[in-house]
Design a protein around this nucleic acid. Structure first.
Length: 786
DNA sequence: CTAGGGTTAG
């Protein structure tokens, strides 16, 4: 069924249908009327039938018919037919010209659109308002500012100066390809503005980072009595999204709840994005669900919300849901997913996504390839990353930077440097990010020379980030003086540079120097941030400057960082190092939003304070607060248990971390646990754990176990462990000593004596301690003889 | 005449 929407043409359409039945109807008036109706309703099939009829009646070359046919095909987006009809006659209506200009632009053929507009001038055809607007649109899409300004000049002397549509087109032209200030001036000079003009200026302000002006414009628009539409709300919501102004955005959203606007796909997507960015995942999901039409973009927004907030698995779940619903992922989908996999270091899921990328034929997309490179790099699959880069048909500077950064993250400075050299060889120009990534890869003395070389390469384009990377690099590569020199030679004042220098001072145990610089920073009127305080507080800790620490604490309160978890963590650690658990706990208790790092710090401080029961209490409190402990948290807890001999609590921790949190114990966890078991006399369990753990038992754990055997007078195990330890480390004396003590205690003085002799022979040690040991054995021997 | 985002860096 084909119906004209406009009632004006319904009679013509009715006539057309009669005509279809009766081939004899062919009067031009009726046919023109029907053609108008087809244009209005974009009725292509009907239009084609009519075109046939017009040809049969030989009206085809009549200017009116021809112009209308151009309009019909233009409206339906059929460029070839519109073009053919246009070329068929000499004289066309102005609308036909305008339509074809617009159509060329729509098909990305702006050059032909401009040629057409110039032909109009040659043929002495006056442009009307629509022509002006069409040409302005072409200028915008072709980024032709020169022509745009010419058109602007032409408008300036025409009568159309104050037209809303032309004005808005000009605002958009300047806003998108020219100076936003020009756009704003034209907008301000418009006598009348409608919702389209307002929506345009708001969107443009956001695009140029003028968020405040965007928000103010929205208010002014309301004051002037113009009602916002979806375009306006979409723009204002995305302003809020990009500026993390979700509180204001929520207010705007409030006005939309329950209206049709809220369910509009563009609106729902913008809202999902805003809530997603601010981490309000529940709200994001609820808006996502209200949308009445979900496209790839919508799924990308909800998936990105989870991906960007560390919920990689949820993001992957949405990916599968999306495909189950028949929505195809695009390159952005994979960029979000792969970047989540990279951040979470989940190589297996990342590789699975790689498979999907290949299945979807998106492996040639450079953004996707770069994210793949990043994923493999971050997950330490550097061979794969290297192969991937070599196989990429198109590489940009981001590809190289990503690969360098991947090596940097895995501590491979030499490799990063050779990738840089390869990059230069292939003619790729490095940028500031390249230098930052590279400098970040140099972390030890042996990379100092490479660091100095990169310093000379980057010298002409130093920015804040590179400069602080240089300070950091020199610090890590052991040259405090060079770090200081770069810092003093800084061209711009920036808190990041100060923070980098403070960190270097701390690495080099120059806490006093950091404190002096901190005073200088105050004089230079550079505002410290939370990281400044974090650094300075650790300077206090390393200098054991308890009173200075208290002063810095007071200053941090003055700057309003009481609730800041970074500062609070530093304070907890500082008080911990200074031995004041009470002060540390006081700071901790004041913070409302405690993250895993702050919790882990207080747990660690309490553990070092020696009260194991308190540590376990804190751990349980943390779990009740819904914060997930990590492997470091458990290490502190286990260490506390070990020091306080809390065997059951320690066993619980060790089980819970694996069963409840899927954390694989590291060698350190095993050492703590073995230590705890050994000290508590559970030697069988300790030995079993040591033999079953997925690591080579360290010298320390064997020694601990041997020591425990001595304490428990466990001769059989002691002999086994001691001999094993000696076979592993024949050059280390302590196993000989401890085992000999065990032999002595068991009355096997001869074996003890032989062992010490063996030790002397193998290690060449004849220290006083060993002499003392020999004497002890002899004494015991004598006692026994008596 | 107007609207929705992503990879690398501190």
């Amino acid at each position: 069924m084909r119906h004209a929407q406009s009632q004006n043409y319904s009679r013509a359409l009715f006539l057309h249908e009669s005509a279809h039945l009766d081939a004899s109807v062919s009067d031009p008036g009726t046919l023109l009327g029907v053609l108008h109706a087809c244009i209005e309703s974009k009725g292509l099939d009907q239009g084609r039938e009519l075109h046939q009829k017009i040809v049969e009646c030989a009206y085809e070359e009549h200017p009116s018919f021809c112009s209308l046919l151009v309009q019909l095909y233009a409206k339906c987006g059929i460029l070839e037919d519109a073009e053919r009809c246009f070329l068929q006659v000499e004289r066309r209506s102005l609308e036909a010209w305008n339509c074809l200009i617009g159509l060329y632009d729509y098909h990305g053929r702006g050059g032909e659109a401009i040629q057409l507009s110039q032909r109009m001038c040659q043929e002495c055809l006056m442009w009307n308002d629509t022509t002006m607007v069409s040409v302005l649109c072409v200028c915008t899409s072709k980024h032709d500012l020169v022509l745009g300004k010419h058109v602007h000049a032409r408008i300036g002397c025409s009568t159309a100066q104050h037209d809303i549509i032309i004005g808005t087109a000009l605002v958009n032209m300047y806003g998108k390809i020219g100076d936003i200030d020009d756009a704003q001036i034209i907008f301000d000079n418009m006598h009348i503005r409608n919702v389209v003009s307002w929506s345009s200026i708001i969107a443009l302000c956001t695009k140029h980072g003028r968020y405040k002006v965007a928000l103010q414009s929205f208010e002014t628009m309301l004051q002037e009595g113009v009602l916002p539409n979806t375009f306006t709300f979409v723009s204002i919501i995305s302003t809020c999204a990009s500026q993390d102004l979700s509180k204001i955005g929520k207010m705007f959203h409030g006005r939309l709840i329950g209206t049709e606007l809220e369910k509009h796909p563009y609106m729902a997507n913008a809202l999902t994005n805003m809530y997603g960015k601010s981490g309000n995942l529940n709200e994001a999901e609820s808006v996502f669900n209200t949308s009445y039409k979900k496209d790839t973009y919508s799924w990308n927004m909800i998936l990105a919300a989870y991906a960007e907030h560390g919920k990689c698995m949820d993001a992957i779940k949405y990916f599968h849901e999306m495909m189950d619903e028949g929505t195809l992922p695009d390159s952005s989908t994979f960029v979000y997913l792969l970047s989540a996999c990279a951040n979470k270091l989940v190589l297996v899921d990342g590789m699975n996504m790689h498979m999907w990328v290949t299945l979807m034929g998106l492996e040639t997309d450079i953004a996707v390839s770069n994210t793949l490179l990043n994923m493999y790099g971050k997950c330490n699959a550097l061979d794969v990353a290297n192969h991937l880069l070599n196989d990429m048909p198109e590489k940009d500077v981001v590809s190289w930077n990503t690969l360098i950064s991947g090596h940097a993250h895995n501590g491979l400075g030499k490799e990063a440097f050779s990738i840089f050299q390869q990059m230069i060889q292939e003619g790729m120009l490095p940028n500031q990010v390249t230098y930052t990534c590279l400098l970040d890869a140099f972390k030890s003395q042996d990379m100092l020379a490479a660091g100095i070389y990169i310093h000379t390469c980057a010298i002409s384009q130093l920015n804040v980030v590179i400069t602080s990377a240089l300070v950091n690099m020199y610090g890590k590569c052991g040259s405090f003086q060079r770090a200081l020199k770069v810092f003093h030679g800084r061209i711009v004042q920036n808190v990041l540079l100060w923070n980098a220098m403070f960190a270097v001072c701390n690495q080099h145990e120059r806490g006093k120097e950091a404190l002096n610089l901190f005073a200088k920073m105050h004089k230079d009127e550079v505002i410290p941030d939370n990281f400044t305080f974090s650094n300075i507080l650790s300077s206090c800790a390393s200098e054991e400057a308890f009173n200075t620490g208290k002063e810095v604490h007071a200053l941090a309160i003055e700057y309003g960082f009481v609730q800041d978890s970074v500062v609070a963590t530093a304070l907890v650690n500082m008080y911990g190092k200074c031995g004041s658990y009470a002060d540390a706990l006081g700071v901790f208790n004041l913070v409302h939003d405690r993250d895993v790092i702050l919790w882990t710090s207080i747990i660690n401080v309490s553990s070092e304070n020696g009260d194991g029961k308190e540590t376990i209490r804190l751990l349980h409190q943390m779990q009740e607060a819904g914060i997930t402990p990590n492997h470091i948290t458990f290490l502190s807890a286990l260490s506390a248990c070990s020091h306080s001999g809390l065997l059951n609590e320690g066993r619980d921790c060790f089980t819970s971390m694996q069963q409840d949190y899927s954390i694989l114990p590291t060698a350190d966890h095993y050492i703590c646990m073995i230590d705890l078991l050994a000290r508590s006399g559970s030697l069988t369990e300790a030995e079993k754990l040591m033999n079953n753990m997925p690591f080579q038992a360290s010298y320390v754990s064997w020694t601990t176990l041997l020591g425990a055997c001595k304490n428990e007078n466990d001769l059989e195990r002691g002999e086994r462990v001691g001999k094993h330890l000696i076979s592993l480390y024949p050059e280390k004396p302590s196993a000989y000593v401890v085992l000999s003590q065990i032999y002595t205690a068991a009355g096997r003085e001869d074996d003890a004596e032989a062992l010490i002799a063996q030790m002397k022979e193998r290690t060449g040690i004849t220290s006083e301690i060993n002499q003392f040991q020999m004497n002890a054995i002899r004494k015991k021997k004598l006692l026994f003889l008596e």
